[in-house]
């Protein structure tokens, strides 16, 4: 046995164990891959749990009904047994005296038993039918719910797709229009933002959600010629603080190095939004 093992796997089993270890890790990785793919496709599926819950709740009454039926049937059987016992005793007592009447009664008994059985059978049938109806209604309700959920899901997906498409189109258009100037403009705007942010002291009346839009006109040297409030925040002090910040931050001398057409296209008039986003109150 040992010889066979050694000959098969050789070198104290190192190659075999390396192979097994590699396989094991590969399998673990594949499981993770599969799992993550699964979870990505099943994102935001809030429908499934409610469905399961509904099934569980509605299963119970059926079960109870079935159990109740079972109990009833058992009680019926017991009763019949007792009846039969009584009858037998009676028969024994009366057999010597009234053979004929006894037969008569027996026939009647038979009749009654048959009727009883018939009644029981009908009762069971009725219950079964009711149960079936109940199940049918339940199934229909579930189907309906599923369909509704699926519809909502589909609409949501469509909406998301449309939004994504729109966003993509916008991004593409912007990229095509300004690919060459893009970086220059970006760095210039970032500089201006930085300077203004540094120079801006927010007034105590500033609140989150406030928004002021200022238009500034600039010369190619980076000097600001005019600042106008295009859209007021509703708070005079806030608007004024923004204006003061622009004046304090100018001149933006870095803009002087910018090519003229870039400056003319992007910086001659520049709109800036002021939002006190990082205030905590």
């Amino acid at each position: 046995m040992q010889r066979v093992l050694q000959r098969l796997f050789g070198h104290n089993g190192y190659p075999l164990s390396a192979l097994i270890a590699l396989l094991l890790h590969g399998m673990a990785l594949a499981t993770i891959l599969y799992w993550s793919g699964e979870s990505a496709s099943a994102e935001l599926e809030l429908v499934q749990p409610t469905l399961v819950k509904a099934l569980l709740i509605d299963e119970n009454p059926q079960l109870q009904e079935r159990q109740r039926l079972e109990r009833q049937r058992e009680a019926e059987q017991l009763r019949q047994q007792q009846l039969a016992d009584q009858r037998r005793r009676e028969q024994e007592r009366q057999r010597e005296q009234e053979q004929q009447r006894e037969q008569e009664r027996q026939r009647q008994e038979d009749e009654r038993r048959r009727l009883d059985a018939e009644q029981l059978r009908q009762q069971q049938l009725e219950q079964q039918r009711q149960q079936e109806l109940l199940e049918e209604a339940e199934r229909q309700r579930l189907d309906e719910q599923q369909r509704r959920d699926a519809e909502i899901e589909r609409q949501r997906r469509l909406r998301e797709q449309q939004q994504a498409e729109l966003r993509r189109q916008q991004e593409e258009a912007a990229a095509v229009a300004a690919r060459t100037e893009f970086e220059l403009v970006q760095s210039g705007v970032a500089l201006i933002q930085q300077f203004i942010e540094d120079a801006w002291s927010r007034p105590p009346s500033a609140r989150n959600g406030m928004r002021a839009v200022l238009r500034i006109n600039m010369l190619p040297t980076g000097e600001v010629t005019a600042v106008t409030v295009v859209e007021s925040s509703g708070d005079g002090a806030f608007d004024r603080s923004a204006e003061i910040a622009v004046h304090r931050a100018q001149p933006f001398s870095e803009l002087a190095e910018m090519p003229t057409h870039v400056f003319n296209g992007n910086f001659r008039t520049l709109s800036l939004i002021f939002q006190p986003e990082d205030l905590l109150n």
Partner: peptide, 25 residues
């Protein structure tokens, strides 16, 4: 960590072979 895990599994399997062979022997 991945490398450590690989090597340790390698050793786990190899030791298993060696030790079970020794027990049988």
């Amino acid at each position: 960590l991945l490398a450590l895990s690989l090597i340790s599994w390698c050793i786990i399997v190899q030791r298993y072979l060696v030790l079970s062979a020794a027990e049988k022997a």
